[in-house]
Amino acid sequence: MGSVSILLLMFCGFAFAALAIGLGNKLSLKRYNPEKGEAYECGMETQGTTWVQFHVGYYLFALVFLLFDVEIAFLYPWAVVFKEIGMVAFIEIVFFVLVLFLGLLYAHKKKALSWM
């Protein structure tokens, strides 16, 4: 069907969600109550603001992820042509992966991969 199908499914998802949420809004009974608009945190009144700076631990993982995600993106084209090229491709990829594996070991040594 060609590249149109991506647009088609984007539209389908959007239309489906819009239709369902719209229908829900139409059918549901609405009664205004200020209590309904409060944050649901176990019934107590909310203490302090939510939008705060977050723990840096999550970002360390995001950084290491970025490194390996790019590695995997490079591995895909290699995987397709690997069998045609043969031994040379294998040796090259061993070096490529080894360098990144050292990076993983370094991150492990620096305790970036252990929580908190």
Binding site: A20, I21, L23, G24, N25, L27, S28, L29, K30, R31, P34, K36, G37, E38, A39
Partner: peptide, 12 residues
């Protein structure tokens, strides 16, 4: 049931 429920949006 979900169709008949109100879609709440928190005030803040």
């Amino acid at each position: 049931k979900l169709l008949l429920k109100e879609c709440l949006v928190p005030t803040n």
